[in-house]
Design a protein around this nucleic acid. Structure first.
Lengths: 137, 137
DNA sequence: TATGAAAGACTAACTAA
DNA sequence: TTAGTTAGTCTTTCATA
């Protein structure tokens, strides 16, 4: 990871469809170099995936979840990440154990997700924050 | 937003580089339809951007920030989103006002970001959670 | 790094609902 | 009038030297 990698990433983070030739022009190198580096960063896991940032519904929220002590948190996380409206699920340090970020059609749908979480026997409690606005880096 | 849109999005969220022809094959329509719909979803804001999910450093964290009551939270959010290591900044409901998600090279770099946040005169306090693991939806 | 071949995306004209 | 299809053209990527 050098400075050229970082500059390429910054362009891709803002628009992952930018052609290699354009990236090359902007960072002052050749198309082949950009391609090779993007390939390398992908295999090395620096680039986890090419994706789309979406706002499919009107309500985004983070559901902070506490689980019981004897629970396989990673496994619960995995299951939650699979839910239709889930953007991602994090295992985190701090008071709660999991943060689930969801993108739902309305508050009712968020409420259903909270219920769905609370119905899992591994889940002790939840705390929800609505995401009122998002600024991408 | 109908079911076809959702199926296209689900494919793009997992790999935004999937060719239109392949998406068309998998959802049972033509390449042109997929393209038109992706275009429409982009102009409508359902697709916010094509991007890359990265793990540039070893430490991801969420920094929960409280600001003073008379502060323009959106503006602070904007400024934080611009920071080099920032993935995104959310305005949220709940005890704190802003959640800043960062991707840093090490814990020292996270600490520097926390300091940077606390040094803003608008910021009253911060609370940090390390993101121990991430599962994408 | 340069170039040609292959793959993919885009334009525009057409059809159907 | 809007959504979908298709053929032809242009752009981007990729392999090779």
């Amino acid at each position: 990871m050098d400075d050229l990698d970082r500059r390429i990433l910054n362009i891709l983070r803002r628009d992952a469809r930018t052609p290699y030739t354009e990236i090359a022009g902007r960072v002052g190198t050749s198309e082949g170099t950009v391609r090779n580096r993007v390939e390398r960063m992908t295999t090395e896991g620096i680039i986890e995936r090419f994706t789309v940032a979406t706002r499919t519904g009107n309500v985004k929220a983070m559901i902070e979840v506490s689980v019981a002590v004897d629970v396989n948190t990673a496994e619960v996380c995995d299951r939650m990440a699979e839910w239709e409206e889930a953007d991602f699920a994090w295992q985190v340090s701090g008071e709660e154990d999991i943060v689930l970020v969801v993108d739902a059609t309305d508050t009712r749908a968020v409420n259903e997700l909270i219920t769905q979480a609370r119905e899992l026997e591994e889940v002790k409690s939840t705390k929800t924050r609505l995401i009122l606005d998002e600024r991408l880096g």
